[in-house]
């Protein structure tokens, strides 16, 4: 499903050069739930962003669902992010000016041929899945961290993506809320067969997944 070959990411500033990823080769199968672990600054987020086409590698190639996406232009990239990928961020990244319902609808806004009423219907279904139907008229800043992350999950799943990328989705949550969030993801993987890649610091969470990939200093370690 996801194939990374010789991925390199170098951040250059005037004074220093940081090698965030050093020749990473990695494959993730369809329907897999994988956890990525490693100390802070080892390149986990960078890896996930590159997988999710939010950032481009300095060198190396990526193929998603059999397509070489490294050379995609803006329009194709956007289309791919829209249809195949769903992102969940540690800091939620909800739009505070929009209601919960409008936030969840967002990905469908950029998909052709989805009517307003269908968007609404599917957003309500997604919110149902994460147990937040009662809060759809609220605004993000009226919700707790766990609720916001569930809104973010609803937004990530509304477009039925084949791949969900979650960067420390429970990092800002207490253990009870974290548990809720991980259970939603597990359920999604089991029932819909969604491929999930999750970055986490939490061994307990990681142990619930099928495979743990460990990173150190920009490289995979085993």
């Amino acid at each position: 499903m996801i194939q990374l070959s010789n991925i390199e990411k170098v951040y250059r500033t005037k004074t220093i050069e940081t090698i965030a990823l050093n020749k990473v080769n990695l494959g993730i199968n369809k329907g897999e739930f994988v956890a990525i672990m490693g100390p802070s600054g080892c390149g986990k987020s960078t890896l996930l962003n590159i997988m999710g086409l939010l950032d481009s590698p300095t060198a190396g190639t990526i193929s998603l669902d059999g397509q070489a996406v490294t050379s995609f232009g803006d329009k194709k990239l956007a289309n791919f992010r829209n249809k195949k990928l769903g992102f969940i961020f540690q800091s939620y990244h909800l739009i505070n000016d929009l209601s919960v319902l409008d936030n969840v609808e967002l990905p469908l806004l950029y998909r052709d041929g989805v009517s307003g009423s269908e968007r609404r219907k599917r957003a309500m279904e997604a919110l149902e899945k994460v147990g937040l139907s009662a809060r759809m008229k609220h605004y993000p800043n009226q919700l707790s961290g766990g609720q916001r992350q569930r809104v973010a999950i609803a937004r990530a799943i509304i477009g039925d993506p084949e791949i969900i990328l979650a960067d420390e989705p429970t990092g800002n949550l207490d253990s009870v809320m974290g548990e809720e969030v991980i259970n939603i993801l597990l359920n999604l993987n089991k029932t819909d067969g969604t491929t999930i890649v999750m970055v986490t610091h939490d061994e307990h969470m990681a142990n619930k997944t099928q495979r743990i990939i460990r990173f150190f200093d920009g490289q995979q370690v085993n």
Binding site: G52, K75, N79, N82, H93, I95, L106, P107, Y110
Partner: peptide
């Protein structure tokens, strides 16, 4: 910027 980043993450083209 953040809002724009969010929109692009979920499929907005630069044009949109």
């Amino acid at each position: 910027a953040e809002e724009i980043g969010i929109r692009k993450s979920f499929g907005a083209t630069s044009r949109a």
